[in-house]
Amino acid sequence: MRVLLFLGSALMLVGVAWALLAAPTELFQGAPQRIMYLHVPSVVTAYVALLVVFAGSVLYLWRRDPRWDRLARSSAELGVLFISMTLLSGAIWGKAVWGAWWTWDARLTTTLILWFIYIGYLMVRAWAPGARGARAAAIIGIVGVLDIPIIHWSAILLRTLHPQPTVFRPQGPALPPSMLIPLVINLVAFMLVFAGLLLLRVRQERTLDALAETLEGSA
């Protein structure tokens, strides 16, 4: 865990430095385009976090092992963190390049709605502690992921303005290596930090649960 966090942070320093100093300036967007080196890794990490929530929720409902619930809960917190970073970095970029902090674009809408769904998840955790809250949250974790494609589809019915994917697309990345390398470095760094934080949080939750059990036992 400590190794992951250390490695991830170090790699992130390299990636950010590379993105700011070495990567070429984009012709039309100028310097704000460099936000992409943080924006894309955080959104990818956010979606990975939500998939971990989904997997943890399904396994918890199936197996009833509190370990899976701790995994889902910890990952949901990180998911909200990374979605927030995505929304913030995207808004700053949007203001600079589009001239607007926000538009009702499909990707933006989907991400914002996911933020609300997982904030709801965390609120249920806060308001309904114990096994009952864990079960309720697990169902929200499953429904949230089921909702992703539908939200996206509905937002396309609205309209779409977001730049089309340049990296994750069937034909392979369209980004030149000079931009792709710092992006990949940052992506790996974000994943490592996510994994490190996730393990850290799961351990905290485990300690907390153990403490609660001990207190209950002695009372």
Partner: peptide, 21 residues
């Protein structure tokens, strides 16, 4: 959320984002 605290507040918070599409 029938057994949760503040369920009247919780339902819109949970339901509205999911039904937005």
């Amino acid at each position: 959320i029938v057994q949760a605290r503040l369920r009247e507040a919780l339902l819109p918070i949970l339901m509205l984002p999911v039904v937005l599409p």
